[in-house]
Computed example of a mutant assay.
Amino acid sequence: MESALDYWRARALLDWQIEMGADEAILDAPLDRYTLTDARPAAVPAPGAAPAVAPRPEAPDPVELARAAAAAAPDLEALAAAMDAFEPCELRRGARSTVFAAGRAGARVMLLLDPPRRDEDRAGAPVAGAGAVLLERMLGAIGLSAEAPDLEGAVYMAPVLPWRSPGDHAPDPKDLAMMRPFLERHVELAGPDLLVVMGSVACAALMDGGGLHRLRGRWAELMGRPALPIFPPARLLADPALKREAWADLLTLRARLDRPR
């Protein structure tokens, strides 16, 4: 009668156990395999091999840096200084001026404008040249002015970006997002009742639901306040046919201001 476990069967079983990871036949004490970990000793680099390079720490999020810097500003003067010193935004290195604001802080109306272009960068003002003349005429037609001595008749204005983009190209959305915490803090500190969004870049950066042509003249909510998109002076100078729509939007703004508080 043939043996139940001959040499070759025993050898095959041993080989199978080795393949399955068995490395000891007998232990001095029972082994609880449920408590084992898969820890392995650290690999020893081969002689002459380059040392392992530790991964670089991730760069801080510029939006979070902007939010912290803006939140720390107790007033508009401090906010302007924090914005001017904000290093992560590369635009500041190529601009001549940091365009912060104009008009009277505390006015009921605050204009949020497109980023400065060449004329504004040179003047250090949110609107300059022929655009500034036309804007004052537009505001004057509904009883407002950037130079008004009283807050009821005054306006305050600031661009969505304080620096000009190289070549007056459309700004990078990353720059708009990076600087938005400063703009939100700006609105908070200025405390207007109403916002007027003037310009296609400002509208695209701040408003939902479409471009300036679609949204103009329609009230929406922005930063906790009523906001009205309107064509900017530069657009009206380039296309005078739009002045009719702009006039209708200005009357919409005047009607909102005349409502009882």
Rank of each mutant, 00 (worst) to 15 (best):
L183C: 08
P171I: 10
G106C: 13
E77D: 04
P162S: 00
E245T: 07
G48V: 13
M207A: 08
L134Q: 05
M83V: 11
T37Q: 04
T252M: 03
E188D: 13
P149M: 10
G129P: 05
A80W: 11
R33V: 00
E64Q: 10
E90I: 00
R117L: 06
P115R: 10
M198S: 03
L161V: 08
A81Y: 14
A130W: 08
A125M: 12
L14G: 13
V133E: 09
M138I: 04
C203S: 07
R56W: 15
L236W: 10
L236Q: 07
L79S: 08
P116L: 00
P162R: 06
E19W: 02
A73W: 05
D193R: 10
R96N: 05
G129V: 04
G94R: 14
M110H: 13
P30A: 01
A59S: 08
G167V: 12
V53Y: 15
R56D: 15
S145K: 04
L176C: 11
P115K: 04
D208E: 14
A130F: 14
A70Y: 10
A158Y: 15
L194D: 09
R122M: 00
D168M: 04
M157V: 13
D23I: 06
A202M: 03
D38E: 09
G199T: 07
L215D: 06
H169R: 07
D28M: 06
L113D: 12
S200G: 02
P226R: 08
A101K: 15
P60Y: 15
A22Q: 09
L251R: 10
L257G: 02
P88L: 04
P115S: 07
L135T: 07
D168C: 06
T252A: 01
G211Y: 12
P30E: 11
P240N: 08
A42H: 13
M1K: 06
E64Y: 12
R56F: 14
C203T: 11
L228V: 04
M207V: 09
D121R: 01
W219I: 00
P116S: 01
A141Y: 04
D61F: 15
A248Q: 12
R225E: 10
R256V: 01
W219S: 00
G106R: 15
A158H: 07
L176H: 08
L212M: 00
A177D: 11
E152T: 05
G167N: 09
L112M: 09
L113E: 11
R108N: 13
V53T: 12
A154E: 12
G48T: 15
A205P: 10
G153D: 12
M198Y: 04
D32S: 09
L250T: 03
L112C: 13
A54Y: 13
R96I: 00
G143I: 12
D175I: 08
D239Q: 07
L31I: 08
R93N: 01
A255R: 01
P126N: 03
L31E: 04
G210Y: 11
A107Q: 15
L161G: 06
E188Q: 12
T37C: 00
A78W: 06
P149S: 11
V160S: 00
G124Q: 03
D239G: 00
G94E: 14
R261T: 07
E64F: 05
A238N: 02
A202S: 04
L14S: 04
L65P: 14
W163G: 02
L36D: 02
P171G: 03
L194S: 06
D249E: 10
